[in-house]
Design a protein around this nucleic acid. Structure first.
Length: 223
DNA sequence: AATGTCATCAACCGCGACCGG
DNA sequence: CCCGGTCGCGGTTGATGACAT
């Protein structure tokens, strides 16, 4: 038994995409828009599975992609966001206009990890790397932002309008973060909406109020 | 010039979440 | 509530190019 395949493997291409395949995908999405990836390949005349089409579009063909090297500002933003969100690449990508989760994940693994290690920081914890456990406990005054903030991301009950406030101790965010999805972070047992923290009015930038299952997960999408 | 090693990144895979019947 | 189909995410792989020997 087991999981059924996402598509008919014997009739699908794999590996690198050809120019012709790219053109077919682009022209189809231009006319019909994104979505329904399962049926898209057949409709677009592609011998690819829907997942492959989706990935190719999102990571490579989308017209709003930035491409090119990451700036120092982006580097630092990724590091800060990673210290807040961990390996939630899609959330991080949502705050870097024109960058994809895959791109950021690759960039993290190839560049930023090394950058942090050269600074003597652990890429996962963002704390100073110490051999001696005692020294770790002694670094409570570490200047890294992640050590000053309760960064716990938690699943929480939907907040009321009163929760749309910026609690004490919340980190400052740059306008670059304003892109797609916003996280609601629980700090000191209080749930907050990040877009409100960034200065937007309720309902202006996110769809918190209309989340379908706000009680299940604390993330929401922009309007 | 040939070969080996390393770095990069596009693409794949498997799983969990979501959603409609 | 359950089930099956679909989507999206994160980890991993493999092809390719750059650089070193």
């Amino acid at each position: 038994m087991g999981r059924s395949p996402c598509c008919e493997k014997s009739h699908t291409n794999k590996g690198a995409w050809t120019k012709e395949e790219d053109e077919k995908l682009i022209s189809y999405i231009k006319v019909h828009g994104e979505g329904c990836w399962r049926s898209l390949p057949k409709a677009a005349g592609l011998f690819r599975c829907g997942k492959s089409c989706r990935l190719r579009w999102i990571n490579y063909l989308r017209p709003d992609l930035k491409r090119g090297n990451f700036s120092d500002e982006e580097d630092e933003l990724i590091i800060k966001l990673h210290s807040l969100l961990g390996n939630k690449w899609s959330l991080i990508a949502g705050r870097l206009p024109g960058r994809t989760d895959n791109e950021i994940k690759n960039y993290w693994n190839t560049h930023i990890k090394r950058k942090l290690l050269s600074r003597g920081l652990d890429p996962q914890t963002h704390r100073r790397r110490q051999e001696n456990p005692k020294e770790i406990t002694d670094q409570s005054t570490d200047e890294e932002p992640s050590s000053q903030i309760n960064l716990e991301l938690s699943i929480s009950l939907p907040y009321t309008s009163d929760d749309h406030r910026k609690p004490e101790g919340l980190p400052e965010f740059s306008p670059m973060m304003m892109n797609s999805s916003f996280a609601r972070i629980s700090t000191d047992h209080k749930t907050l909406c990040l877009c409100y923290n960034l200065g937007f009015q309720r309902g202006q930038t996110c769809a918190c109020q209309s989340m379908q299952r706000p009680q299940v997960i604390g993330f929401c999408r922009p309007l």
